[in-house]
Design a protein around this nucleic acid. Sequence first.
DNA 1: CAAATATATTGAACACTGTTCAATTTCAAA
DNA 2: TTTGAAATTGAACAGTGTTCAATATATTTG
Lengths: 208, 208
Amino acid sequence: MGINERKERERDAVKDLILSAAREIFLAEGYENTSIRKIATKIEYSPGIIYNHFKDKNDLLLALHDKAFECKIEALFLSVQNMPDPLERLKATGRGYIQYGIDNPQDYELMFILSCTMEALAVKEEFWQDGAMAINMLKQNIVECMDAGYFRKDINPDEISLILWSQVHGLVSLHNKERLNIYAMEDQKAFMFRSYDVFLSMIQKSLS
Amino acid sequence: MGINERKERERDAVKDLILSAAREIFLAEGYENTSIRKIATKIEYSPGIIYNHFKDKNDLLLALHDKAFECKIEALFLSVQNMPDPLERLKATGRGYIQYGIDNPQDYELMFILSCTMEALAVKEEFWQDGAMAINMLKQNIVECMDAGYFRKDINPDEISLILWSQVHGLVSLHNKERLNIYAMEDQKAFMFRSYDVFLSMIQKSLS
DNA sequence: CAAATATATTGAACACTGTTCAATTTCAAA
DNA sequence: TTTGAAATTGAACAGTGTTCAATATATTTG
């Protein structure tokens, strides 16, 4: 069935063409300005072709997200996995998260802010899996911090993980949505990282 | 000049008509589904009329926001102002913020997530003032917590204020955008408030 | 090779969107 | 009653996502 294989390859090639054109526009002009017609024009196809490969625009955006960032969060955890000290590892994870978020605002929005991402049921499970995996790695790290005496041991790791995630997500999203402008800070990014460091120093158990 | 006054009253009446119709649609169907034509149809006017009262759609949404929530954040601070213990006051402020955010997701989005809100330069200053005032009250509260021995005194209140804001904003926005679904929690809201309490207990200076 | 079949692709059409603006209506002042 | 200014209209423009009958292309069958 070599012919069918070739056909499938050709189909996938068109799909990839759509995706890469969409990604270019998405990164350059943002979510709202990525239109079906713009994508179609860019790849010199008719607008209708997109609906042969994707259910609707949400579906396309989701595929975009999945294709490029499938393991982005996991990669973040993997990149710090060889750090021996659990607290240093936790710190580095959070800093990496913040850095990624402010360096890739469009992707960050797709991942953690836009509702359309959550609307496509098909991808939900995948997100669930990736997300649950990330949360697990975070909890693992938290438990290690407890064992090493950095954190109190009487707290549920679930709650600490949410605290940590909320903190970094809060920082990134306030920054990306320009809400940190109410602070008359010369260097907002430095202010964020400073605050994050202070945050981590505050939630530690004080030496007894 | 009684006639001019009446005319101005009539003008304002139409403006209010637009705003209340817009608010109804906005709350019922969200930002994206609030269209100029829907508003115009609801108040039985032509679409063009809206542009006699507002520069564009952003301007209208901003007026909506300002009208209903001008002092919402300040009211939050005022409602807890009579609490004697600064830490209890801080706790209550945060809880109130979270509660407000999850009870009024559309308004919360308008205030802290949507970019269109930040785009209308005219309102920026107003937001700046309200925001700066809120931040100041928060910092004031933080200093009191320091003085009362709840927090370490070697930290800049600016940084603590950002930590606190990021935390509650992170919780609210992750919740409202359905990202907390990756936690298989029966009661997400209870989980949030529990985490917030733990957060506050963790950032306190341990008794020496 | 020709006809039948299946698939890929088109582009016009539909119902919407925000916004503009010349034309019209409304109404107080001269 | 005419004048002038303001409020209001509604058609038009350029754009949006989406659908679908028609068409082109390529493969399989007779």
